[in-house]
Simulated scan of single mutants.
Amino acid sequence: MQYSVGVEYALHCLVYLIDNPEDSPIGIKDLSSFQGVSETYLSKIFSKLSKAGIVSSVPGVKGGFKLSKSPEEISFWDVIEAVEGSKPIFQCKNIKDNGYLYREKGCTPGTSCTINLVMLSAEEKMHEYLREKTLSWLNKELENVIPKQIREDTRKYFSKSTI
């Protein structure tokens, strides 16, 4: 299982929106320029985030995006699901029912597929973990791992671009 790089771009960009004043949304042009990614690509990601209710779009010359919820209410899983969709990682094709005994002997399957049950359980544990990690948590973690000057320069970049 692999999530697209769109999830990473989304999480990074959402962190930039946390400290931005409510009345100063950040535009896609500024976000894409800062990240070094095309506006078109980032627009597609933000369209999905908007549809999921994670961000809201502010129209106009000084428009852009802002968080629709508090950072405490937005989990990693919310972002992953918005960008990637809710398709399960493991997709059981119920191949056991095509096995020799079922096919040739007329046996009927009596139990759920154990492999599918294990995979679904593992996926749910991962979802639970990702639901526990919020944008607020991420922002606090970044304060500990990114040098203070870089965090300040990032905030200045976006406050300058919204003036």
Rank of each mutant, 00 (worst) to 15 (best):
I150F: 14
S159Q: 11
S56R: 09
Y100N: 03
S47A: 13
E143D: 13
V61F: 11
S86H: 12
G64N: 07
L42G: 02
V58D: 05
E143C: 09
C113Y: 00
F158L: 12
V37H: 00
K133N: 08
T134E: 13
K66Q: 11
V58Y: 08
G36Y: 03
S38G: 15
I26E: 04
K69V: 04
N144I: 12
E39N: 15
C107A: 11
P88Q: 01
W77E: 14
W77M: 10
I74D: 04
S38F: 01
S24G: 08
P25R: 01
I115W: 01
L135Y: 02
T134Q: 12
E152V: 10
E141L: 14
T111R: 12
E128Q: 03
E84K: 03
L101R: 11
R103I: 10
N98L: 08
G60Q: 05
L130D: 11
Q91S: 13
E123G: 02
H127K: 08
K156C: 11
M126C: 06
K44G: 15
E39T: 15
L67F: 01
K48R: 15
D78K: 01
L101P: 06
C107V: 10
T114G: 07
G60V: 06
Q91A: 11
P59H: 09
Y41V: 15
Q35I: 08
R131M: 09
A52Y: 00
G64D: 10
I95R: 14
Y102E: 06
S68V: 03
S33T: 15
